[in-house]
Design a protein around this nucleic acid. Structure first.
Length: 392
DNA sequence: AAATGTCACAACCGCCGCCAA
DNA sequence: GTTGGCGGCGGTTGTGACATT
C-alpha cells in the first residue's frame, strides 16, 4: 500500500494567487513552518494543492528571495554554472543566494539564451553555432573552383562546411593572431587595477569564458590579458583560478545540416565532444583551396559572430577551442561565489554585494550595450585584418 | 486610439527518484 | 517486494504588460 493521496484534486483552485491566499500561506508558514506540504493547504485554510503551495512559497513568497533585475555578476555566474551544469537550474540556484531555480530558468530563456544566440553561440553546448556556417554559400560562390584542390575531399566530406565570408574573416583573424601572439591587443586604457589576468600554459585551447567577454562588454575596456606559459591553462582572477583542460587532439566530428563529418587534423575534438578549430590548418587549407570570399552576405551578422568567437579565443597557437568557448573550467562554484565582493550601481532593487569576481559595474549599461560591445571591439580591428593576400 | 506583436514571468504540467505504507 | 504518494525538478504554457505599427 502506498500513502494516502496528498489532496483531493477536485475543487482545488488553480491559477494566480490572490493576496489573501499569499497572506494565509505566509502566516501559516511563519507560525508552523511548512512541514508537510501535503497537509499544509488544509491546515492553512487554502484550497490549493500542496505542490502549488510549495511552488508559491519557494518561488515567490520566501522572505530571502532577492527580487529585481539580475546583476551582471549574477548573469556571469549563471553562464559559468550553466556551462558546467547544464539545465540544472536548482543546482545553479543553490549557488545564487536569493534566486530561485524558476527565476534563473526564466531569465536564461528570456535573456541569456537569446543573447548567446545573437552572438552565434549555441546556448546548449556553449559552442559557436556551426549551423551558421552556411554550406551552400561556398558551393554557390563564383569563386569556388571545383578543379582546385578540393577542400571537401580533404575534409572527407562532400561539401565545404563554412560560409565563404566567415572563412575569409577567419583567415584574417588568424593572420592577426599570428602578428600579435600572446596578448589580446584591444583597447586597454582605464583598466581597473583588479582586472582579470588570463594566463595559459600551453599554446593549447585557451579561451576566455563568455562571461569574460560579457564582462568586458560591461566594462567597456576591461579586457583580460593573455600570456603564455606552460601546459595547463589557468584563468586567474584575484581570488580564484580556473583550470582549463587541454582537449584531445584527434579527429573530430562536425555536425552541420544534420550531417556528421569527420576530418582529421583540421578539427579537434575535446573530450567534451565539442570541436576545436585549428586555425593554422584551417588557413592552410584555405590557402591550398585558393579561396577568397565574396561579400554578398550579411556581414554584420558574420562580424558579430566571428567577433564574439575570436574575442573569446585569443589563442596563441591559433586554436579556436569551441568546447571551451563558454565553458568555465570545473572550478568550485563555491570559490567563484566567495571571492571579492561586487556592487552593482543598478537601478534595480538588487544592490546586494555579490560574491563573485571583483568588478564594479555601472548598472546603466543596457542590454544592447552588453550585446554589441564584443562585436564592436572586433569591428574596430577588422579593417586591418581584411588583407587576404597572405593566404593567396 | 486601436490593433497587433513581443516580452517577461508566474504558474502549471509531467516526469522521476525516494521512501513510507 | 510492491505500490503509489511526496517532493523536487525541468519544460512548457498562459497571461498581463509593454512596444510597435
Amino acid at each position: 500500500m502506498g500513502r494516502a493521496p496528498c489532496c483531493d484534486k477536485n475543487g482545488l483552485k488553480k491559477g494566480p494567487w490572490t493576496p489573501e491566499e499569499d497572506q494565509k500561506l505566509i502566516d501559516y508558514i511563519q507560525k508552523h513552518g511548512h512541514g508537510s506540504w501535503r497537509t499544509l493547504p488544509k491546515n492553512a485554510g487554502l484550497a490549493r494543492c500542496g505542490k502549488s503551495c510549495r511552488l508559491r512559497w519557494t518561488n515567490y513568497l520566501r522572505p530571502d528571495i532577492k527580487r529585481g533585475r539580475f546583476s551582471f555578476e549574477e548573469e556571469e555566474t549563471i553562464i559559468q554554472l550553466h556551462s558546467i551544469l547544464g539545465n540544472k537550474w536548482s543546482a545553479i540556484a543553490a549557488r545564487l543566494p536569493g534566486r530561485t531555480d524558476n527565476e534563473i530558468k526564466n531569465y536564461w530563456n528570456t535573456h541569456i539564451r537569446k543573447r548567446l544566440l545573437r552572438m552565434g553561440i549555441d546556448p546548449v553546448t556553449h559552442s559557436p553555432r556551426l549551423d551558421l556556417l552556411d554550406l551552400s554559400s561556398i558551393l554557390g560562390s563564383s569563386l569556388y573552383n571545383p578543379t582546385q584542390l578540393g577542400l571537401s575531399r580533404l575534409l572527407g566530406m562532400e561539401v565545404p562546411l563554412v560560409n565563404s565570408e566567415l572563412l575569409r574573416l577567419a583567415t584574417n583573424l588568424l593572420s592577426s593572431q599570428r602578428e600579435n601572439p600572446p596578448n589580446l591587443h584591444l583597447p586597454q586604457n582605464n583598466l581597473p587595477e583588479n582586472h582579470h589576468h588570463f594566463s595559459t600554459t600551453t599554446t593549447t585551447a585557451t579561451t576566455f569564458p563568455t562571461s569574460q567577454v560579457l564582462q568586458a562588454a560591461i566594462h567597456d575596456q576591461d579586457i583580460p590579458v593573455c600570456t603564455t606559459t606552460s601546459n595547463n591553462a589557468q584563468f586567474l582572477n584575484e581570488n580564484h583560478q580556473f583550470n582549463m583542460q587541454r582537449p584531445n587532439v584527434e579527429t573530430s566530428t562536425v555536425v552541420a545540416g544534420g550531417q556528421n563529418y569527420s576530418h582529421p587534423n583540421v578539427w579537434q575534438e575535446s573530450d567534451a565532444s565539442a570541436s576545436t578549430l585549428n586555425l593554422d590548418n584551417f588557413a592552410s587549407l584555405l590557402n591550398h583551396q585558393g579561396y577568397y570570399g565574396n561579400s554578398d552576405v550579411d556581414q554584420a551578422l558574420l562580424m558579430d559572430t566571428l567577433a564574439d568567437q575570436a574575442l573569446i579565443n585569443p589563442n596563441y597557437n591559433h586554436n579556436l577551442n569551441f568546447s571551451s568557448v563558454l565553458s568555465t573550467p570545473a572550478s568550485s562554484p563555491t570559490n567563484q561565489l566567495h571571492s571579492s565582493s561586487t556592487y552593482m550601481n543598478s537601478s534595480s532593487a538588487s544592490q546586494t554585494p555579490l560574491n563573485s569576481s571583483s568588478t564594479h559595474i555601472n548598472g546603466s549599461t543596457t542590454e544592447d550595450e552588453r550585446d554589441s560591445y564584443c562585436s564592436n571591439m572586433l569591428k574596430f580591428e577588422i579593417p586591418d585584418l581584411l588583407d587576404v593576400n597572405e593566404f593567396m
